[in-house]
Amino acid sequence: MAEIQGGYSIQRRMYAIGIRPGKKIMKVSSQLWRGPVTVKVDNFQVAIGFGMASRIIVELL
């Protein structure tokens, strides 16, 4: 994962929950109509609202 765009508060929440630059991140599922995206990082899964998820910029591995 390359970076999280967006304001300080979004970054802070994402970092705290364990999503931050340099981590391997895998998409598990996404819901219809721009619903939340579920991703797997390390050993845990997080559901992230579509808008927030679209701020996560990744590099494909």
């Binding site: 929440r13 929950i17 939340p36 579920t38 845990f44 899964q45 997080v46 559901a47 992230i48 808008g51």
Partner: peptide, 10 residues
């Protein structure tokens, strides 16, 4: 409404 951000437990 704010967006969801929650951990999904195993």
């Amino acid at each position: 409404s704010p967006e969801i951000l929650i951990e999904i437990p195993p």
